[in-house]
Design a binder for these strands. Structure first.
Length: 258
DNA sequence: GCGACAG
DNA sequence: ATCTTGTCGC
């Protein structure tokens, strides 16, 4: 796919102030409303994705999972494209690690390898699934929003932990599979307080509440997807595991390359 | 000064 | 994220 906004490609050499200013611009250009034409049912997976296949121009929506693995000095990104339950394309990208991890500035540390990998992807992506937050971010410009706006493609973020915002119910309790808990903006987020910026989604759970319990996923809109539809998409993309299939496959691919 | 903090 | 074996629960 092609970069639509070159000026937004994350540059690790920026100062912290420049990074934050760029994020404010990106958030202003981001759309947190549905603009994709994808029916969640068209993404629904019946089983785990294991087969490879050829891209079909007349087939269903292409969902691209993105994830990273790290070595001492570089980040490795893997992107896996799925269409109608089959892997139709996969690509990798590498970039040197130039800055440390700073909460809120993740895209500047891992963004280059992602852009490189997506840039070399030959099939058109209808939806990007990033690891990390989108709108659940201090300036509403998490890595999912950042990458989505750079390519002007529908995107969403799937995280394992909450960066900011307040869940309407405690995330430490036991919830049955399918439970959705809205995450609202607080004064630390650049959105009106109370705005639903994402959800905690219980994609997987153990049967006995007394014993073990699984933590919910934290999902949020990246670009051109609403908070509600974001959960619909993630739910449709999960096939028996805690993480959605695109993310699982990208995760495995990145580790494999490393 | 204190607290909070995706991967 | 990464360094790492066994182990508990279903």
């Amino acid at each position: 796919m092609e970069v639509a906004r070159p000026e937004y490609v994350p540059d690790p050499s920026f100062s912290r102030e420049e990074m934050e200013a760029l994020q404010d611009d990106i958030a202003a250009d981001a759309a947190f409303a549905d603009d994709h034409g994808i029916d969640p049912d068209a993404l629904r997976l019946t089983d785990t994705v294991e087969d490879e296949g050829d891209y079909d121009p007349d087939g269903g929506p292409v969902v691209v999972g993105v994830d990273q693995a790290f070595t001492d000095d570089e980040s490795v990104s893997a992107v896996v494209a799925i269409q109608d339950g089959r892997v139709v394309a996969r690509e990798t990208g590498r970039a040197p690690l130039e800055i440390p991890y700073v909460p809120g500035l993740l895209a500047f540390r891992e963004g280059r390898s992602i852009v490189t990998a997506l840039d070399s992807l030959s099939v058109p992506a209808d939806l990007l699934v990033l690891d990390g937050s989108g709108r659940i971010h201090f300036r509403q410009a998490g890595i999912a929003t950042h990458v989505g706006v750079v390519f002007d493609a529908p995107a969403l973020g799937v995280a394992k932990n909450l960066l900011c915002g307040t869940p309407r119910r405690s995330l430490d309790d036991y919830y049955r599979e399918g439970t959705r808990i809205p995450i609202e903006a607080t004064d630390r987020v650049s959105a009106p307080i109370g705005t639903v910026i994402g959800h905690a989604f219980q994609s997987r759970q153990y049967p006995n509440p007394e014993k073990r319990h699984v933590n919910p996923l934290i999902v949020s809109p990246g670009h051109r997807v609403s908070a509600e539809t974001t959960v619909d998409f993630v739910e449709a993309l999960c096939a028996g595991y805690k993480l959605p299939e695109p993310t699982r496959l990208a995760d495995a691919a990145a580790d494999r390359v490393k």
